[in-house]
Nucleic acid binder design. Sequence first.
DNA 1: ATCGTCGTGCTAGTATACAAGTATGAATAT
DNA 2: ATATTCATACTTGTATACTAGCACGACGAT
Lengths: 234, 234
Amino acid sequence: MDLEKLILEPKYSSETIGDYSYRMLRRNIICIILKPGDSVSENTVAAALGSSRTPIRETFSKLAADGLIDVHPQRGTYISLIDMKRVKESVFMRATLEEAVMRVACAGISEDQIFRLEANFNQQSFCFNKGKMQEVFELDNKMHELLFEACGMEHVWQAILSIAADSYRIRYLKLSAGVRGEETIAEHLEIIRAIREQDVERGCRLMRDHVAKLDEDVEVLHRQHADYFKNWER
Amino acid sequence: MDLEKLILEPKYSSETIGDYSYRMLRRNIICIILKPGDSVSENTVAAALGSSRTPIRETFSKLAADGLIDVHPQRGTYISLIDMKRVKESVFMRATLEEAVMRVACAGISEDQIFRLEANFNQQSFCFNKGKMQEVFELDNKMHELLFEACGMEHVWQAILSIAADSYRIRYLKLSAGVRGEETIAEHLEIIRAIREQDVERGCRLMRDHVAKLDEDVEVLHRQHADYFKNWER
DNA sequence: ATCGTCGTGCTAGTATACAAGTATGAATAT
DNA sequence: ATATTCATACTTGTATACTAGCACGACGAT
């Protein structure tokens, strides 16, 4: 185990150690700093973050619920492999729900909500041109969250997140590999335009296709890092 | 706080105290033994279950994620009010996803899967006639889980569960009040029949209506227990 | 050389003690 | 009678110590 390379942002003074360690660990797992199969232990993480085991245990419990770690009592804990079965289900779920939400959004959301989406897109475009892919990644996620929020579906987005962690790892790998960066942003622009023009059918189709594209072009990832995956069978 | 009336099933020897306490607390909250607004504390629960605070803390963390308790640091923890906003989102999500899953199921699932659904229905009907509403409640939930499982969507069902706790409390209240018990079971029969006959459109419509009916006839609950709810505005 | 035994060190699960902040109510001053 | 102060008890957050079980390697018997 090798936690020196952990990316550690500063801790907000208001947040508890438990919240902080969850934020950091989740981020490091999704960004493949902690690699699938790597071993972690409550003790070493606690030491790396300069805390005791108690708040780390809470964090492990949440990460296990996310499917990001596998806890084997009395044996050890490991960063989970990316489960393609889970990814497939996550894509099905997102495609279904985001289409339904697009139907609501295209029926009409407030001008302010549209502005927020456009402002987010503006930042995405800017960061992409500057090569700040980490920021693009987070803005992408945030844009979808904004859409659910605009439709009063915050909790539905939370539910999606609860099984989307593996999809995030794939999305991050693809972004790192330079796969489908520009196209993705272009699709975002089209989606926002459909919302503005209240073009329901086009918007739904765009969103359905957009989400489904997550598991396109993943073969190249599998070739490079076959040991990151499980339940691959395509 | 008044934990004498907690229903405590025996603990499986294999499960940890953390898992056991989560199972018991969740059950007692959903069955309104612990009432919305009631105060609970890590200490008193630990004492009631004869354990220390550590595993109870994990349980509290999970219950908070489910939206079943509200933790106020240094002040106290309370059984959360039933959030009608969350219920509304949960119904939207279930209606959308269960329809999509029905589309898969009606396209053809194995004979064995259909048998399991029918066996479950048979038990539902039996228990209902015997007045065993607690069992009916659990078989109802199980039936929907079986359907997702038959379509290879176990994780999607898990995601639904992650925001469905409040809906469960409502469903339980309705069942206790004798609201729409028989109709619900009749609908289950129709749904299974549609699957067997591979009648996609009828199956989807039945399921959509079935799920949406959760927030029908809830006014009577609100009249009886207005203090159980928040974000009521209908 | 191979197999089995046992000890050592690691793991996660649990118990307990302490820290820091909040609500409450009694005591006191006005 | 009312307002203020302050001690106290209770809350969750954190740290630490202990328990039980597994992996692994050294060592010895065969």
